[in-house]
């Protein structure tokens, strides 16, 4: 595929265990995934499934012990610190927790100029860029002189998005970026993600535990379970007509905001659970 931006092949991530002779903890075992230019790939899974580890491996924050991560054709899984830093303008991140992902002691302007200073952007140029970024994420222009604690969770997430966009990356890893937000705030931040993608053509690796959020934003969806991808494909197919038993369980477990439909879904889930339990008993 010519327009492939990121290719993950047989990726293994192991965290060393404390103490001698203990087996390392294997967070990802032989996982493959690819992302095309301008595409959103949703990654769904429950806690401990390894979805955050995959995101951190792409960002160079997790130890890769096997397989490869290729970005624009080049293997980036074992880069040195210096080469990794050069990748900053290509791969960026928006973290889950908007309260700890911004340094509380710095103003918004200082936070947003941080990536620019690395690129040695001149001061007036950087100030202009900060204003553009704030405008792009629909924050008032005077937000730059304030501190993170003066903003709500949704606004902080907008700031985090602006920081990710500062270097005009081609891929942003979004690690549960809306799960700490209220329902209506969540919807608006998701809209912002789509709007930014439409205007810049950036690709997202969008990590979430919420099937509905992923379905809303993703062109393609991959489902993770215990360090492996159990099902992947077209977003509509995976989130509406799942094939793998685990995806089906995940799909049926999410309660629908409609009492009648939810009653049906519940009945179906219980039927599936009984069917799954029956053969193991006999």
């Amino acid at each position: 595929m010519t327009d492939r931006l990121l290719g993950v092949e047989d990726l293994v991530v192991e965290y060393p265990a404390r103490g001698f002779g203990k087996k390392p903890f294997r967070a990802l075992s032989g996982l493959s995934l690819d992302i095309r230019l301008g595409e959103t790939v949703g990654l769904v899974g429950e806690s401990g499934s390894g979805k955050t580890t995959l995101g951190r491996a792409v960002l160079g924050l997790a130890p890769v012990t096997g397989g490869s991560i290729r970005y624009a054709g080049r293997d980036i899984s074992r880069l040195g610190r210096k080469e990794r830093r050069a990748l900053a303008s290509d791969i960026q991140v928006v973290f889950q927790d908007p309260y700890t992902s911004l340094n509380p002691a710095l103003t918004i302007e200082q936070i947003l100029t941080e990536p620019l200073t690395v690129r040695k952007v001149a001061r007036p140029e950087a100030a202009r860029r900060v204003r553009d970024l704030l405008d792009q994420v629909h924050l008032p222009a005077d937000a730059g002189s304030r501190l993170p604690r003066e903003f709500s969770g949704g606004q902080r997430q907008r700031i985090a998005i602006a920081r990710a966009l500062a270097l005009e990356p081609r891929l942003i890893v979004c690690d549960e970026p809306v799960s700490a937000l209220d329902l209506s705030t969540q919807a608006r931040v998701l809209d912002l993600f789509r709007e930014v993608q439409d205007s810049t053509g950036v690709a997202y690796l969008f990590i979430s535990h919420d099937l509905a959020v992923v379905r809303h934003l993703s062109h393609r969806v991959a489902v993770m379970y215990r360090g492996e991808i159990v099902e992947s494909g077209d977003g509509d197919q995976v989130t509406s007509r799942p094939q793998h038993p685990y995806t089906q369980r995940l799909f049926l477990a999410a309660p629908l905001p409609d009492p009648d439909l939810q009653e049906q879904r519940r009945a179906e889930r219980r039927r599936l659970a009984r069917a799954a339990a029956a053969p193991s008993v006999s």
């Binding site: 327009d3 095309r36 230019l37 301008g38 595409e39 959103t40 081609r170 329902l183 209506s184 969540q186 919807a187 998701l190 993608q197 439409d198 205007s199 810049t200 053509g201 950036v202 919420d210 509905a212 959020v213 379905r215 809303h216 934003l217 993703s218 062109h219 393609r220 077209d234 977003g235 509509d236 989130t239 509406s240 999410a254 629908l256 905001p257 409609d258």
Partner: peptide, 25 residues
Amino acid sequence: SLFDAVLEDTAPRGPLVPTTQGAQA
């Protein structure tokens, strides 16, 4: 407005159309 923000009943996004305006960026 809360019900409007619920995502469960929204349509999935669908596959990526190769000729989006931003794809060459």
